[in-house]
């Protein structure tokens, strides 16, 4: 067979994508290797992140030079990440399903483009602008209205009891993430719904079902896989979200959230917030440990995405990130 230069050229360029992904994995692992050796399993289960005394001479621990008293545990950030993502999805899933059903069957066809544009534009708002909005609008709203209201209505449940605090914290971060995951879940479910074969809809109408029963009891169950995939895609987005969470979460260090109003930190937000302090560490162990957080986050995100793509077949949501 003749060798076609054009084919070799496009294959080489296209392989840059897998190579980049592999490089991200390999270099993060290499760079965090000293931290992986020093921290061990304690990294995932320790609650205390302490850079140690950066002004005294480093000490040798297990043959590695680290600042005196340094201790790197990220359990607090793992809990913060999971808690915000979980609450966010709990809020955004039902809303997204309702919106997807509304767009697919609830509105006349000529209004659909305009209404789905709202959802698409919501996906295009940069995360730092969500953070700005959260700071300017959501935090006062949570501190002065939503928080006190929740605490007085559901305060008998320990997780919801006050004090409400400043508005920075788990609740606000979850609300912002909920809004950010709505477009992902909605568009994935919606693109599944509009692909449901016409015959199935017509058969259900012929049985005397109302329009809502058709979309709720026949169409939605038939795209169950899309729904699960959409939720996991949304999870991927929520887990890795950085700026919006950083700006509204309050940046807790070294303690686990006691109530829904507690300040928290997520892994992604913590990496950004720590750059300056970590650079002060002459041994570099803090920067290596941050790389280890990035590695953990990468592995979670890749795993979540593999599951999501496998379930949705990689369709219908390439425009959202």
């Amino acid at each position: 067979m003749r060798v076609r230069p054009i084919r070799i050229f496009v294959i080489l360029v296209a392989s840059l994508i897998p190579i980049t992904l592999a490089a991200i994995f390999i270099f993060l692992t290499l760079y965090s290797w000293p931290a992986i050796q020093f921290n061990g399993v304690h990294f995932l289960f320790g609650r205390i992140w302490d850079l140690g005394n950066l002004y005294r001479n480093p000490v040798m621990v297990h043959g590695t030079s680290v600042p005196r008293g340094a201790n790197y545990g990220i359990l607090v950030f793992i809990v913060g990440t999971l808690a915000t993502s979980f609450i966010a999805l709990l809020l955004s899933l039902p809303i997204s399903l309702l919106v997807a059903m509304f767009l697919a069957e609830g509105v006349p066809e000529q209004f659909r483009p305009a209404l789905s544009l709202v959802v698409e534009l919501l996906a295009s708002v940069p995360s730092v602008v969500y953070g700005l909005w959260g700071y300017a609008v959501l935090i006062p709203f949570v501190a002065n209205f939503l928080g006190p209201a929740l605490a007085s209505v559901a305060g008998f449940i320990p997780f919801f009891s006050g004090p409400v605090g400043s508005g920075y914290g788990l609740l606000t971060a979850s609300l912002v993430l909920a809004i950010m995951t709505v477009p992902i879940i909605t568009s994935t479910v919606y693109s599944g719904l509009i692909r449901v074969p016409r015959e199935i809809k017509e058969a259900t109408f012929a049985l005397g079902a109302t329009r809502f029963e058709v979309v709720r009891k026949v169409m939605l169950p038939s795209v169950r896989k899309n729904v699960i995939g959409a939720v996991i895609l949304g999870l991927g987005r929520a887990l890795g979200e950085t700026m919006a969470v950083l700006m509204v979460s309050g940046g807790a260090l070294n303690y686990l959230p006691g109530t829904i109003y507690s300040p928290i930190t997520t892994m992604a937000a913590f990496i950004v917030s720590q750059l300056d302090s970590a650079l002060q560490d002459p041994t570099g162990m803090a920067v290596h440990s941050l790389a280890e957080i990035a590695l953990v986050l990468l592995m979670i995100a890749v795993l979540v995405n593999i599951v999501a793509r496998a379930l949705t077949g990689g369709q219908g949501h390439i425009a959202y990130g």
Partner: peptide, 12 residues
Amino acid sequence: LCDVLTGVPSIV
């Protein structure tokens, strides 16, 4: 892997 790369958090 292209799809997986879009899902890698930007901070990573």
